[in-house]
Design a protein around this nucleic acid. Structure first.
Lengths: 145, 145
DNA sequence: ATTAATCCTATTGCAAAAGTAGTATAAAAT
DNA sequence: ATTTTATACTACTTTTGCAATAGGATTAAT
C-alpha cells in the first residue's frame, strides 16, 4: 500500500508553485531543480495539474506557473484527483461493482470505513495548510543554522 | 493506492476461522469454497497467517484451523502485518530513510499524518469487531429473505 | 500403503507504474 | 525574421511488484 510518485511529486510541485504565485510564478525547470525531480518526468506532473485546472501560466511560456485559485481553496484531494480517479483502497467499494457477498461482508465495511477516513483527511487538508507548514519548517531550520 | 489481495483475502479468511474456532475449526479448502478464493492461492495466505502466529491447526492436519487467541485480542494490524512489514504509505517516512529535505518538507508531514490515522484505524479495529459485524449482517440478510 | 490435507519454495505471467524520447508549438530575445 | 528557450503533448521503453500457478515434501488418519 503505497502512494504513487505522481501524487507525491505533484504535492511538492504544488507547494513550490503556491509559494511563488505572488511573485510572478515559477518555471518548471526551477521546480525540477529545487525538488530533485527529472525535468522530463515533471512534464507529466505539471501537465496533469494544468489539465486539472489547478495551475496556469497565463502570461506565456516564460511567465512561470501560478495557482488558478487561492491555496486555501485547493484541497489535497484536488491534487490527488489530478492523477487518480479518486480515493479507493479496494475495488469492491466502488459504485457498480458487483459482488454476491456485498451485503454480508464485514470486510467490505472495514475497508469502506478506512476509505472514508482517508478521503476525509484529503478533503480537510488544503494547499494553504501545507504552505504554512512549509514556511514554519523553513524558518525553524534557518534559526538552527 | 490499493491494498493488496493477500491482506484482503487474509481478512476474510480470518473471519471464517474466527467464527468456526469454537466449532472444531475450519479447513482451508472450505474457506476457499466459501470465499471464492483459489485453494492454491489461499495456501500462501494461510501459511503467512500461521507463521505470524495468528492461527493454528493444533490437533493435526485434519482438525481445521482455529485462532491462537481470542478474536478481541487480534487487531487488524496484526493481520496486515502477517503480509506486510507494517503500514507505510510512502518510503520517506520510514526510519533510516535518508533525505536532504527531511526537516523542511511539508509534504512529508502530510504523509506521516496520513500514515498515523491509517495505523490507528488498523490498531483500533479487532477481529472481534469484524466478527460481530459479520453476524449482524447475516442476521439482517436472513430476515430479508 | 494409500489418501487427503497441509507445508513450503520456486517460478511464471502480467499489468501498471516510472521514467525517457521526440516532435510540435509558441512566446520572447536578438 | 530567425534563433532560442521553455512548455505541450504523445508515444514508447523499462522496471517492478503483485497475483497466481506448479510441484514436490510432509504429516496424520484411514
Amino acid at each position: 500500500m503505497k502512494f504513487n510518485t505522481k501524487t507525491r511529486y505533484g504535492l511538492r510541485a504544488m507547494v513550490e508553485i503556491a509559494r511563488e504565485t505572488n511573485n510572478n510564478g515559477i518555471f518548471q525547470k526551477d521546480i525540477s531543480e529545487r525538488q530533485d525531480i527529472s525535468n522530463k518526468y515533471l512534464d507529466h506532473i505539471i501537465y496533469a495539474l494544468k489539465v486539472a485546472g489547478l495551475i496556469t501560466n497565463v502570461k506565456g511560456k516564460k511567465s512561470g506557473y501560478i495557482l488558478t485559485r487561492p491555496a486555501d481553496q485547493i484541497r489535497i484531494l484536488d491534487i490527488n484527483n489530478a492523477f487518480e480517479p479518486g480515493i479507493c483502497v479496494i475495488d469492491c467499494i466502488e459504485r457498480n461493482y458487483k459482488c454476491d457477498r456485498e451485503n454480508t461482508c464485514s470486510a467490505k465495511k472495514f475497508w469502506s470505513g478506512l476509505n472514508n477516513i482517508i478521503a476525509d483527511y484529503f478533503q480537510n487538508n488544503t494547499l494553504q495548510d501545507l504552505l504554512e507548514q512549509q514556511m514554519e519548517l523553513e524558518k525553524k531550520e534557518t534559526a538552527n543554522q
